[in-house]
Amino acid sequence: MMDDLTLLGFGPDGWAPLLLKGCLLTLAVSATSMAIGTVLGVLLAWARLKGPGWLRRTALVYGVVLRGVPELLVILLLYFGLPSLILSLSETFGWEAPGLPPPFLVGSLSVGLVSAAYQAEIFRGGVGAIPRGQFEAARAMGFSDLLCFHRIVLPQVARVVLPALGNVWQFNLKDSALIAVTGLSELMRTSLVAAGSTRHPFLFFGVAMALYLVLTTLSSTAFHYGGRYSNRWDRG
């Protein structure tokens, strides 16, 4: 028992600092991929709703593929594929080879690409849930498209979309553990290394589970209150 406490402590043999760093990295990767997913997801949703025919089809195929293929496969694609893509690009344009892309970028990009496919569906559904009359009332009063989006669409989409985005965030958080296979020392990877080098897998995987539970519980609470705030006008 004493042994376990030393291993989990902040002392010279303790893994606490590395585990906490892993936690922060997990949060950072998840947040970055969430942001990538939101930006790309909005673009995809726009393409599905208002884009020209070829763009609409591209967005549709993107969604089907990225939601139907294992996340791990997407990570492998970027982990092995991105370096050679960068290399061939730099050869074509005669740039100096920039070297390997940082694992953080590869990881958040691959989780972000998958996240975008799910978020696009959510945004599309959210805009579809707003009654047409809402846009007409705004247009009849001379709102520009931008003003209408900002003042009428966005607040109402936020209400519909926020709980679903909370779900996507939970998936992002858990998918970020898959990035461990690329060697980025986020929480999963750190616990794996610790388990291997101390030969206490139960202890370290257990601690990692507890830390993931803290992260998921805290963020679901945050989304719950965010959802309640954005929904304040819908309680009859």
Binding site: F205, A208, T216
Partner: peptide, 23 residues
Amino acid sequence: TFLFRGTPLILQIFMIYYGFAMV
């Protein structure tokens, strides 16, 4: 539900595969 939905599946797989081997 709380335990298995709140943690990554990969961690659960590692727990079972590497963890039980040490018992």
